[in-house]
Design a protein around this nucleic acid. Sequence first.
DNA 1: ATTCCCGTCAACCGATCGGCTGATCCGCCG
DNA 2: CGGCGGATCAGCCGATCGGTTGACGGGAAT
Lengths: 207, 207
Amino acid sequence: MTDPIRVIVADDHPVILGGLVSMLESDPGISVVATAADGAALVAATRQHACDVVVTDLRMPGTGGADATRQIRRAAHPPRVLILTTYDSPADVMQAVEAGASGYLLKAAQPREILAAVRAVARGERAMSPAVAQRLSQLQDSEQLTAREVQVLRLMRAGGTNASIGAELGIGAATVKTHVQHIFDKLGVRDRTSAVATGIDLGLLSA
Amino acid sequence: MTDPIRVIVADDHPVILGGLVSMLESDPGISVVATAADGAALVAATRQHACDVVVTDLRMPGTGGADATRQIRRAAHPPRVLILTTYDSPADVMQAVEAGASGYLLKAAQPREILAAVRAVARGERAMSPAVAQRLSQLQDSEQLTAREVQVLRLMRAGGTNASIGAELGIGAATVKTHVQHIFDKLGVRDRTSAVATGIDLGLLSA
DNA sequence: ATTCCCGTCAACCGATCGGCTGATCCGCCG
DNA sequence: CGGCGGATCAGCCGATCGGTTGACGGGAAT
């Protein structure tokens, strides 16, 4: 029998944090060494407590899970990070993976799936639920929008015309039209209304 | 000291269900008599166990929390229902209140808020977090859409033109234009793109 | 150094939208 | 019975969109 896996847990919902801790503690091979209610507290906790795995929510007040992951992974011997969240919008998943997360699970997962994932990432493996992987592929199919295009898409959601969007961004209406066309191509739609709808669906606009 | 408040808890996420139960049980004035993982099991549980308060999520596989609430409230001496969910879309809240819920809290709430709410609804009072009440007023401001208008809004989200929407619904394009105008008036927007965006925001399209 | 992508702008044209006014029919409620 | 709201349809007009093609400059990559 080896030493237990040392885990730090972060979630801004006290109820969920409590449920997670007691669930993890019920496994004799896992030991929760600290908890946090937001990203900043999580980063601080990883500096004060040696641990193998961090289990964290993504959407938290102040510093989010993605930023926290980035900071944690910069350490000398960083722990693995397992994202455990409610949402599976492709943009969220992408952000987490780019930040250096080793796994991405949904809170709908069964306890034994979560425990298995914690052990897997502790071993250095990756853990991603099939549903999440599928959502991620959606985003990869529709190649990513550039920062400028996301800006335009945001203003489209607000109901701006090409001219008013141009005024807002300090560029010409013709340029906005070009961006809009590129957005259509990348999202596979033919009009601004469904562009905004799919943008929201992919999580490009909610964050 | 009176008898403890008998509570039945329902949530499809095992982690959250566990956290809720242990949190509620930590209060000596509250006793959890049963749990359920979906609406159907919840309704069955209320028939097998006498209880004062039901604490339930809204979005669950199969029978959702709103339908379950409706069925529970039809009983002779129905328990009060406290909705505890992640989402605060006005349409969700409205649905729950119409179904007969006595309270609506967000999972982000602090444990003592939740405990206070359980005690409040057990006494017959209503419990609604300020944030939720505010969101609800949003929906009341923008008067409700008719069933037909919601149909049209759904097809607008898919990117349909007035003509194609008319073909889909078996009505003329002119009629669709009228519906669209009414939707604009009710939602306070001037174009279909922001109509769809606010429709999604109000939860009129996600359900 | 050349290529590729991004962002910028231009002109043209048909299709569609958004705003307006007004009309008919039906069911419900008082 | 009369009124009210929902659903249906019509025509008109300017504004805007969506599609297309082409162009220029800058930065990053190879």
